[in-house]
């Protein structure tokens, strides 16, 4: 049984469909990159997988006993968050909340998990800084650390590299590929960086308000749509 199965799923906001005709499977240990133009329904799909949005038709099934509290999610930042008075550590630790259930306070284990999240993202020096005083890229790394410290089966990343400089971006891609390979963590990532996507991902899902391609990365690179989107080697970053 696959971790996530989409069967003929479609999602809509008031009025028209945003994305439809979704048919794909994500198996444990996969690394799936969701690519496509702006407004092609990528973030909506991520929300659908997280059950923040119910499909208008079809279904999104989870398997392998996947529970919500085994998922690390990196949402796109909201305006209200950017000037939020909280320390970096408070934000990262809040990722552990779901693991607490109804218990009111964090345990030593939660704090250790938060510490290791902070260490992994290399933000120890920011630990006691105020979240709103950080740059966009630093904030993004804090939110990634929060996702890391709760994810035990699945990591769902919605444009994780937004605002992060090129050097750090490559480092983070390696880090994500690392946890995917070594710890068997399943990764689903929305990305605009098609070249890094095909470099690291095992599978590609290409959306344009409908599913244009789903399959192994190697097949995507050879497909018509893939070739058009990737562009000539060394050419434009995005088609």
């Amino acid at each position: 049984m696959a971790l996530i199965t989409c069967q003929d799923a479609s999602f809509a906001y008031e009025g028209g469909a945003v994305v439809s005709g979704l048919n794909f499977e994500v198996r444990s240990g996969d690394y799936l990159c969701v690519v496509g133009e702006n407004g092609s329904g990528k973030s909506t799909l991520i929300k659908g997988i997280l059950r923040l949005k119910t499909p208008r038709s079809g279904s999104v099934l989870t398997g392998d006993g996947l529970k919500a509290r085994e998922i690390g999610y990196l949402p796109q930042q909201t305006a209200a968050q950017k000037d939020f008075p909280a320390s970096v550590y408070e934000v990262v630790l809040s990722g552990r909340l779901a693991a607490r259930g109804i218990l009111p306070f964090y345990s030593r284990h939660d704090k250790r998990a938060a510490d290791s999240g902070v260490k992994r993202l290399g933000i120890e020096h920011l630990r006691n800084r105020c979240y709103r005083e950080l740059s966009g890229g630093q904030q993004q790394r804090v939110l990634l650390a929060r996702a890391f410290c709760i994810a035990s089966k699945l990591l769902l990343l919605d444009e994780p590299m937004a605002g992060i400089d090129p050097v750090m971006t490559q480092e983070l891609y390696r880090l994500i590929a690392d946890v995917n390979k070594k710890e068997g963590l399943t990764v689903i990532m929305v990305s605009h960086d098609i070249h890094s996507s095909i470099k690291y991902a095992s599978h590609i899902l290409h959306l344009d308000n409908t599913q244009i391609f789903f399959g192994k990365t190697a097949d995507y690179v050879l497909s018509d749509v893939g070739r058009r989107f990737i562009g000539p080697e060394g050419g434009e970053q995005r088609a």
Binding site: L50, R51, P75, S94, G95, L97, A98
Partner: peptide
């Protein structure tokens, strides 16, 4: 702790259950 998480990022909190 729950009030903090819900205040800071409702979508994340909801997504993790």
């Amino acid at each position: 702790n729950k009030i903090f998480a819900v205040t800071f990022d409702e979508n994340f909190a909801r997504a993790t259950g």
